[in-house]
Amino acid sequence: METPEISPEEKIRRDALFQREFVPHMDTLYNFGFHLTYNEVDAQDLVQETLLKAYRFIHSYQEGTNAKAWLFRILKNAFINEYRKRARQPDPIDYEEVVHYQDREDASYSGYVDLRQEIFQGLMGDEVTIALNHLPVDFRTVVLLCDIEGFTYEEIASIMDVPIGTVRSRLHRARNMLKEELKTYAASQGFKENR
């Protein structure tokens, strides 16, 4: 890749910084990309693009910046751009469209979906992956960022460019959707709710 003229010492410094600050997040980035696309090649491309971009802008990187959140943000944006390009005709998933259908915080908090342990403990990992896959991508994203990656609401808000209230309501909604779907799987396997 083309880099503006830099001294060998500077190159060594940047490479070391890259290895130290960005490479440790490579696998989690890949996992995130995989769950966004459910395609290994697409996920690999997203990670390549993300890390190349991070390297290109490494001169602006300040130590102590939240590298992980920054990288996730780059990857998420790369994903959106890619899908915009592909989504000429009927959108398989329209990342933006999903946003409108709920965002009023108060309204989205209605209801606690009760999923009893007996129900979900009979489920395998596959069903969870499928259920997650079925969520609209915005909703899947918040679950991945919060539950799998452990980002705070504030970090998720800056990764996704939405207010914290939206993060909160989307998370709530997403988890309820997951529970509903898992309940349906359990029911199809003949699990009876007794009580």
């Binding site: 696998d27 996920a43 690999q44 403990q121 395998m124 990992g125 969870v128 799998i148």
Partner: peptide, 13 residues
Amino acid sequence: TFLVNKIERRCMP
């Protein structure tokens, strides 16, 4: 806990 344990995790090939 269930969710975190069951969601498939993959590493960069």
